[in-house]
């Protein structure tokens, strides 16, 4: 989603007080370091509309406007609450200047068991920058923790013809079956894509 569309969608959901707060915060984000306090306080200012993802979206807009350098981005993640960390991860796809240096943040999130962090970590940035092993483990983690496959960006393209991913998923399905448990339907969907296409 384009940032301009995101901004419009957020404004659509905010009441007058929250809109005034957002306008002030975005103006300051472009010019002063004060925006970091707004980044932390976003949820209590945008809560009135009771939209669960509104604070995430607001924080993404702040990050996109402020364009923090890598040390700042890393500090915001490291010092952030789970909600702030989630926003940093979701913003990565919108921060054009960030190369592969933000991968440690994605890897940190993938080590957690907070499914909202795991889901935020497997967006377009991860699809572009995770190496083959890291990406396969991320898919497995999603299946393991119940994060739906459809939040994994570009999964059909990355899974295509991946024989090692097929082996990992088949082993996982076998382990689940051996213990008398189901495996997620999403597993079958990915597995189907790992089969090399017929010439």
């Amino acid at each position: 989603m384009l940032i301009a569309d995101l901004r419009t969608a957020v404004r659509d959901h905010l009441d007058d007080d929250a809109t005034a707060w957002l306008d002030r915060a975005l103006t300051e984000a472009a010019t002063t370091p004060r925006w970091e306090a707004d980044f932390a306080a976003a949820a209590r200012h945008c809560r009135r509309s009771h939209h669960p993802e509104l604070a995430d979206a607001t924080r993404i807009l702040l990050l996109h406007t402020a364009r923090p350098d890598m040390p700042t981005l890393t500090r915001l993640y490291a010092h952030g609450t789970a909600a702030e960390r989630r926003a940093v991860l979701l913003a990565l796809a919108h921060l054009e200047d960030v190369g592969p240096d933000a991968l440690p943040l994605v890897e940190d999130a993938l080590r957690t068991n907070d499914t909202r962090l795991v889901a935020a970590a497997v967006g377009p940035y991860a699809a572009r920058h995770l190496d083959a092993h890291g990406w396969r483990q991320a898919v497995l983690k999603c299946l393991f923790t119940g994060v739906p496959l459809d939040v994994v960006a570009d999964w059909p393209a990355r899974a295509r013809g991946d024989a090692e991913l097929a082996r990992i998923l088949t082993d996982y399905a076998r382990e689940r079956t051996a213990s008398g448990r189901d495996f997620p339907a999403d597993l079958t969907r990915v597995l189907a894509h790992t089969t090399p296409e017929e010439p």
Binding site: L6, H51, E53, L54, A119, G146
Partner: peptide, 12 residues
């Protein structure tokens, strides 16, 4: 519960 089609995800 992470849901790809969750209503709340509509903004993002």
């Amino acid at each position: 519960t992470p849901q790809a089609t969750h209503e709340g995800n509509s903004i993002l």
